[in-house]
Design a protein around this nucleic acid. Structure first.
Lengths: 190, 190
DNA sequence: CATTTTACTTACTAAGTAGTAAGTTTGTCA
DNA sequence: TGACAAACTTACTACTTAGTAAGTAAAATG
């Protein structure tokens, strides 16, 4: 018997990577078990269904995001620095094996994933937009940002473009992703 | 024996819809055969492998785009009208059963689709960006558009954001997609 | 030390996957 | 009318999928 240390966490880490690499329909329990050197059923012991595994991964991601944005290390940054921090989340995805955003990946498969997963994706998407919208709103009032339209619609453009750019970079390379980030920054920084 | 009229075309139409609805790994030959009322093998007769079917669909889409942009009905439009035409392609996707962009869908699955398909996606993505970049470049010179940065990077932001917004609309609704289109227009129109 | 709980393996099911080979029906054309 | 090709069906293979039930080994607990 092969024992995994910190089983649940390790399985979720792998599932998260696979999700960002191939999407929900693109990986199987066998992929996870294989990489960990255990049998399929060992994964089912910790996460009876694939839906539960997916939900656990996104729920953890949501918690992580909540912790980050409420952490003083990020809360005390200037407005442009906060925006940079946001872009860097996705730059790290790109650099780290060409991952895409969890939200985008699961929304492409939205019509073929379980209900519970869809709800989690919706929540994560909303929470991210709410944070970004507040940043843009406050930053504009403080004179750090400038842009036309509402901060809600500008947040939607920025988030959706970063999401799309991570996907585009799969076909066109990292340079294309960086182009999108730099253009977005130019578009809002005073 | 059930005969399909215009078999190849009908199969490609269905495959395109399924691709935009669930992605490449999200549909099977059985889905197509079932909807057409024929057997699996009938699909294999026209498209021996799933890769060939996928390639055929994207190649046809590329041809269609080429024909459109070279058609006088679009070529003779004003710069803002051309931009509107571009956005309307994707608005139609959204309205028509919440489809997403072929490029985005296949780039999410990029690491788990056949080689030949990846090359087609890359080509379609490039061709779209080249057209949009030229529109922005010429429109800016003519005084119809204004934006910071290069027309290449602005084209990348617009295209990736529309791609991302179609996905986002799956979780957050059509309103969110429209928000992104309107914001993009405000960002470039003088 | 005995018992129970945790974390796995073995062995399986039922369903779905792409793909193939051989046979059948139907329309076309010489 | 006969031959042939096009467009299917039947019947199958080999493989992968999520998920389950029963058994085992090791660690924790009393």
């Amino acid at each position: 018997m092969v024992k995994i240390e910190n089983s649940k966490k390790t399985i979720m880490n792998l599932a998260e990577e696979l999700l960002q690499d191939r999407g929900f329909n693109g990986f199987s329990y066998a992929d996870i078990a294989g990489q960990l050197g255990v049998k399929n059923a060992a994964i089912h012991y910790h996460f009876p269904s694939k839906e539960e595994l997916g939900i656990a991964v996104i729920r953890r991601y949501r918690e992580r995001f909540k912790l980050w944005v409420n952490n003083s290390r990020i809360k005390d940054l200037s407005y442009p620095e906060k925006l940079d921090w946001f872009f860097n989340i996705y730059s790290d995805f790109r650099v780290n094996n060409g991952k895409v955003c969890l939200v985008g990946a699961l929304e492409v498969e939205f019509n073929s994933i379980p209900e519970g997963l869809r709800k989690e994706v919706e929540s994560l998407n909303k929470e991210t937009l709410v944070w970004l919208e507040a940043l843009l709103e406050d930053g504009r009032e403080a004179g750090a940002f400038q842009f036309k339209g509402t901060s809600a619609s500008k947040a939607a453009v920025i988030y959706s473009s970063v999401q799309g750019a991570l996907q585009m970079a799969r076909a066109l390379g990292t340079k294309k992703f960086r182009e999108v980030v730099e253009q977005n920054k130019q578009d809002v920084l005073v």
